[in-house]
Nucleic acid binder design. Structure first.
Lengths: 339, 339
DNA sequence: AACACTACTGCAAACGAGTGCAGCCTCGTG
DNA sequence: CACGAGGCTGCACTCGTTTGCAGTAGTGTT
């Protein structure tokens, strides 16, 4: 009871393997007599024939797999993206091979090497580092790929990114609408592209809305985590700067702020408002529930996969990039400033 | 600049492809002259040769991939498990193909079919449904697999499960140690194996510790979510049963209890203690931070992968199963009962 | 009736690596 | 010097599928 092969099907249908192959492949089906094709298909079905993708891949140099390169699957940001990716890969007959880089350049290189040796047809790269000689090299070598969450500089690669600038403006406008005029920003690490773009957008929004544009109001955390966020807020507080609201570089940094509120007895949102960025799961369970900017992660993944499939189908097509709109989720961590 | 093949290496080294193959494969290296082998290896390296796993797979019927079947990657339970799995798969030269079933039996069957046609060498199955004719059939057909989070009934398949009963006892003992004698249980759905086993363990622990064993103290939620948990606690409250602590079937159910506390003005932990189960991420950010039972998810994944690799290496080996110990994480949601 | 043409099908050669078998050479032994 | 035994290496086939090419039969045109 080994799995039936194409030959078995051909034999049972009384035709040559080549004919069976053509009959089973929709693209070449036109080359064989319609009756014969029908017969072959029926036999294949009754035998429970499944084409062996390995053999097929050997001949066609296509593996039907794409690599998904993440910094860390355990970051709640990524599962929805992966989900979105698979949502479009699957109907197209592709599968995704997921690897974690832990943001370690050496590991990233090793993992991508590993993926290439597995003959992936394309790469979806979601790592956050801002420079990437590796990407540049891969692109030169003709590896088709798309980037997620970051626009590549100088490399002609499709990318799909959330419209951070618009999101930041949404947040700042919300705060300003509540009456805040002195808003602080605990930015993410400036070695990441999102870190710098959000910080830049923050300054822009503050100016556009005519709020206090005081450089002392922004500090940068040295990682995207809670500890670094807490550290950042402490710096601001200890510098004696006055402000009534905080725009955090991401939700984790906002959570770090919560820790500082607790440790210093600051009431949120009565004395201090915060807005995060990303809309991680379970933010609504916090006290107070965190107001944040929601990113359509799943849609990002889906769009990325679509772009990749396009690029695989026609590698010469010029790199198209997509900017996805974000939305503001108002919860309990923002309120008008104390009079 | 196409990737160099075995032939290219052989040619460059002045030997036949067969010799090169043997030289490169540690298992057959002994068959060739040591000097030749060294030379071939050096040439291969300098050419940047990588064996094509597709071609290799065709001949050896091994794909170097295993399937990972999850209900839903977006459930925070699974990423750490996946991480653990890849942690051991990777050094062994294997990769994991992840699929989501959404707990839909039809989809599950389709997905597993898909995996099999991709020639996976084994399956790690982490779906939660309690009956599984499909598993039985796969096992009969000789598909090697291991189950995670659930012990299969009647099928001789290795499994790796957290020691739920011990975990439940840890929780109840903690509450009892604080002085609680009337502890309620909002159980998970009894259609899932963990739902029933935790409920059973709860009754056992209560009896063992000599606490009030009142059937009115346990209710069951009809899903593992927050809404269902809230609903369950409301039922208990409205029935007028007296109790000072709650053991929730999982963390989400505990979160549902938080919602009810908020809506009825119940002080936690002053008036009511709660303990959850699973130790999801960010539980420490809640007010109060949730006391819960921690499951070593990553270790579970790693252990599962090890078991699978063993089974692949020697399919005749009898199914070995592992029960992993859990631990209690005491945070702010538990305190002695109000006097 | 010869011709071109279409429509179909089979043959055989790939794809890249693994492997049983046979042959070669060399060495050691009688 | 002849013979056998190892030690290495090459030949050729295999895995399951795709695909260029050639061949056959049937149809229509002149």
């Amino acid at each position: 009871m080994p799995a039936p092969t194409l030959r078995d099907v051909a034999e049972a249908a009384g035709v040559h393997a080549a004919t069976a192959s053509r009959a089973l492949n929709p693209a070449t089906r036109g080359l064989v007599n319609a009756d014969t094709a029908r017969r072959v298909i029926k036999v294949a079905e009754s035998l429970g024939y499944r084409p062996n993708p390995i053999a097929r891949g050997l001949k066609t140099a296509k593996s039907g797999t794409v690599g998904i390169v993440l910094p860390d699957l355990m970051n709640p940001l990524f599962p929805p993206i992966v989900r979105g990716i698979e949502e479009v890969l699957e109907p197209a007959g592709y599968s995704g091979l997921i690897v974690n880089t832990d943001n370690d350049p050496g590991r990233e290189e090793w993992q991508i090497d590993h993926l290439r040796s597995r003959q992936v047809e394309g790469l979806i790269v979601a790592t956050a580092r801002v420079d990437h000689p590796l990407m540049r090299q891969l692109h030169r070598e003709g590896v088709v790929m798309v980037m997620v969450n970051r626009r590549p500089e100088g490399v002609d690669v499709p990318s799909i990114t959330p419209d951070d600038a618009a999101g930041v403006e949404l947040a700042v406008r919300h705060l300003a609408g509540l009456g805040h005029t002195r808003i602080a920003h605990v930015a993410g690490p400036q070695s990441t592209s999102t870190g710098v773009s959000r910080a830049r957008a923050f300054r822009g929004a503050v100016r556009d809305l005519g709020l206090d544009d005081d450089p002392a109001l922004v500090t940068t955390a040295d990682s995207w985590g809670e500890a670094a966020g807490a550290e950042g807020l402490r710096r601001l507080l200890e510098a004696g700067v006055e402000f009534t609201a905080i725009f955090a570089g991401n939700d984790l940094i906002a959570l770090g702020c919560y820790d500082v509120f607790f440790e210093r007895g600051i009431e949120c949102p009565a004395e201090m408002s915060v807005v995060g960025f990303n809309d991680m799961p379970f933010l609504d369970k916090l006290r107070p529930p965190l107001t944040t900017i929601s990113i359509p992660h799943q849609q990002i993944g889906a769009e990325a996969a679509r772009l990749l499939l396009d690029a695989i189908a026609d590698p010469t097509r010029p790199a198209r990039s997509v900017l996805l709109p974000l939305s503001l989720v108002v919860r309990g961590s923002t309120a008008p400033p104390a009079a």
